[in-house]
Computed example of a mutant assay.
Amino acid sequence: MINAAKTVLITGSEGFTGQYMAAEMQAAGYHVAGLGSKSATTVDYYQADLTSIAELTAVIAQVQPDIVIHLAAIAFVGHGDANAFYQINLQGTRNLLEVLAKAEKKPEAILFASSANVYGNTSEGSLSENTLPAPANDYAVSKLAMEYMAKLWQDRLPIIITRPFNYTGVGQAENFLLPKIVAHFKSQANVIELGNLEVWRDFSDVRAVVNAYRRLIEAKAFGHTVNVCSEAVYSLREIVAMCEEITGHRIDIQVNPAFVRAGEVKTLCGDATLLKTIIGNWQVPKLHETLSWMLKSE
């Protein structure tokens, strides 16, 4: 008898990362089911609110997932409602864990996406998983609290936690920095307002990030908290220059003091040693390639 494909439940499946995650898992032969808080017409999609144990219980009982990839979160740091970070990112995750722990069929792997935001912006240089967390906003605090809370369940459930650094790609909302820059170039705007141009950040491609998530699951990296990062840093000035080179369009940068964060660390770079130790060779497209893909997309 041929084994049926393993079923993966992706929370936040209709979001930016979720859509790439679904494509990654489908391409690898998995059967994908999605979960989100809004209605959608996607096949095998289930609507449920993470704050409702009853709704989550019904979905888990119906899907009976072999693997759960938990991406659903309030992810925009500037989101206006601080309480939502805790209700969704923390309490919603706890509800999901409680339901999975009680499920008739236990998942064989659960991956949670946390965030490199937990490191804050006070540590210079290359940050490994041993860097002390110093969250600087409610989003980061909610993600770090989620990590600690998830660890309470590690003796009952096979949990992997990832800490992705910045990543981007086609379809990311324009309230994120690189899509904002790309949108200005696509519309051939003459001026763009940015913050500090001399901050250096680690940017990955969303396609490489979801590939790392799948491979961490297949490597059974249970009990680990793992950075997902490119180990390459770029300044905003360099990113704008790359977009100018790709498009041939010149843009005037105006620094808006309102966008400059006090005490911002000049360089934030991730250390991906642990990730590569667990999954082996892993390639991130150069940022120039990712920007070209975004600039040339319809």
Rank of each mutant, 00 (worst) to 15 (best):
E193I: 10
Q19A: 11
G15W: 01
I2H: 15
T273P: 05
M1F: 09
R261K: 13
V284R: 03
T51V: 13
D81S: 15
D155T: 13
W293D: 15
P65Q: 05
E14V: 15
A258H: 12
S204P: 02
A232L: 15
L216D: 02
P285W: 10
T41A: 15
I239V: 14
T42K: 13
L236G: 06
V260T: 07
N3V: 09
I74N: 02
I251W: 03
P179L: 02
E108G: 10
T11N: 07
W282H: 15
P164E: 03
K220M: 12
V68F: 07
D138E: 12
I181W: 03
R156C: 08
K143E: 00
V260N: 07
V141G: 10
T122P: 04
V68P: 04
S142L: 11
N211V: 06
K296V: 04
A189P: 00
K286F: 06
R214N: 05
V118C: 14
A27Q: 14
F185E: 00
G248E: 02
L9C: 00
V32K: 05
G169I: 07
N190R: 12
A48N: 12
K220V: 02
T290N: 06
Y86V: 00
T131Q: 10
A221L: 02
L197P: 01
T247I: 06
I181P: 02
K6V: 04
S123V: 14
L194I: 08
L152P: 05
H184A: 14
Q19N: 12
Y45V: 08
Q172D: 09
A116D: 01
P135F: 13
K38T: 14
V284G: 11
G169C: 02
V32T: 08
V209M: 01
S126H: 11
I278Q: 01
A173R: 13
Y167S: 08
T131K: 04
Y213H: 04
G195M: 03
L127A: 06
A84V: 02
V206D: 07
V228D: 08
L291D: 00
V265R: 12
N175T: 13
S37W: 09
A28W: 00
H249V: 04
Q91I: 14
E238C: 09
K286G: 13
A134S: 14
D271M: 03
C243N: 03
C269P: 04
D271K: 12
V68L: 10
D205M: 08
H184Q: 10
L268Y: 02
F76Y: 15
A4F: 08
K276E: 10
R156I: 04
V228P: 09
A241M: 09
P257A: 02
V77W: 10
V233A: 13
L178E: 07
Y167T: 07
D271Q: 12
Q172F: 01
